[in-house]
Design a protein around this nucleic acid. Sequence first.
DNA 1: TATCATTTGTTCGTATGTATC
DNA 2: CGATACATACGAACAAATGAT
Lengths: 259, 259
Amino acid sequence: MSEIQRPGALYQQVAAAIREAILSGEFAPDSLLPSEAQLMARYEVSRPTVRNAIAALRAEGLIDVRHGKGSFVRSSGQPVLTLERRISRTTEGKFVMPNGDIWQEAEAPAAYRARTTKDTGHLLQLDTDEALFGCDRLLIDPSTGTRAMHRTLIPFEVAEIVPLLAEEPCKRPAAFYRLLTEDGHKLSWSETVRARMPLPDERATMKLPDATPILHLARVTHDTDNRPLILEELRVGADRAEVSYRITADKQPARRARA
Amino acid sequence: MSEIQRPGALYQQVAAAIREAILSGEFAPDSLLPSEAQLMARYEVSRPTVRNAIAALRAEGLIDVRHGKGSFVRSSGQPVLTLERRISRTTEGKFVMPNGDIWQEAEAPAAYRARTTKDTGHLLQLDTDEALFGCDRLLIDPSTGTRAMHRTLIPFEVAEIVPLLAEEPCKRPAAFYRLLTEDGHKLSWSETVRARMPLPDERATMKLPDATPILHLARVTHDTDNRPLILEELRVGADRAEVSYRITADKQPARRARA
DNA sequence: TATCATTTGTTCGTATGTATC
DNA sequence: CGATACATACGAACAAATGAT
């Protein structure tokens, strides 16, 4: 049948052949690929080789495999959910966020106490092991089934200054922004976006398919003097969601930045 | 030794045991894991089982394996490069971007003509198969070795209105912004962030390790009337880079958004 | 430079378990 | 229940990269 030789390993040749067949349209999205036995015959290789090739395509996110059924070409569709990371304020002082109201809480929020890690400490401009109030939420968008994990972290330091914050660490972000604004703070925000492979428990709770990275957003609410007040983290599967920002040119000379 | 039974598959039990050993610190970051033979003895399983467990940990991004040497615990360090996606303007009209000058071109930029895909067409508010000028660059940050792929796409439609753009589609973005501004356009930008697993050629050109997602940024330059003028794409390995944005609350009521 | 031991990569074979229909 | 298909597990052999001798 389709013999090729180039890239070295047999299973990679098979993987390349299947990949081309997919991209060329021979195997349409959402369609069932030939079974392992059929692929063994088609490329005249053993089962381990076929499985190795399939494993490579899974790692690339090209196909999905379901036990007892077969391998499907992933519908590689664009994300169905665009998270517009903007914040607006009504004349009455209420904060409104796009997508702010699509989420439903899948379970009761869990409040707890924790300490800064190297990572969260850096974002909050604190040392490691500083005390925090925390609250974790599991969010679901009912219209698409997309799941996301949200976390709010409030340093003790900040809670002492604004005691209202610590009373109920599981308020919605918009409520925090309002509280702080009514307390006289002028807020601004910065957000950092990372992508990584999910930990096993993240994969489970967000029901992520194979080879699906997660987008990890960290939003820091800053005070007037640029001091960090609150850290919010949002984790969502990158197969379903994308995030978007608006950028406007400012007049200040930009400085080079480096971590 | 360390026997466990819970989660079903033997190789997953082994993987879980190794994962715990890593997270507990028994296997320090950057250290060599026991060899396959040693793991076989330690857990009393066959080589395929050990390799399966290792494959699982690779897919999680927990370890890195090098042919002929062994498996290393990934140093799971934070990204070394923070891309601040801001745009500033000096009083002389020059555009300045943080990180705009850290990149060096690894090879000569490649200019070409192309057509909109479903994806790029959507971002440019064009149909599919509309003609475009394009330019691809391979960028390198010498101080960290980080590689990135940059692409500029300019619709024919826009080039007709602003012929200056089409003359040299491989200018730097800042030059385009200046050209457009001098031509009387008031610019604004929106940027969309996605994460996905790299295609094989992307992995190769950016020299990405296993199980490393890429951040895929799409920046659209808008005209005064919100019409898209230019599309820029930036792809970079998520193991090295993160992106950051600034958010300020505006007074307009925010609307819900959906793709 | 060349060789060798170690370690991972690739490929075959075979058998059995389990999910789906 | 049976047929099909993927998942798991063992065994064996050779290839290829690495580092040290």
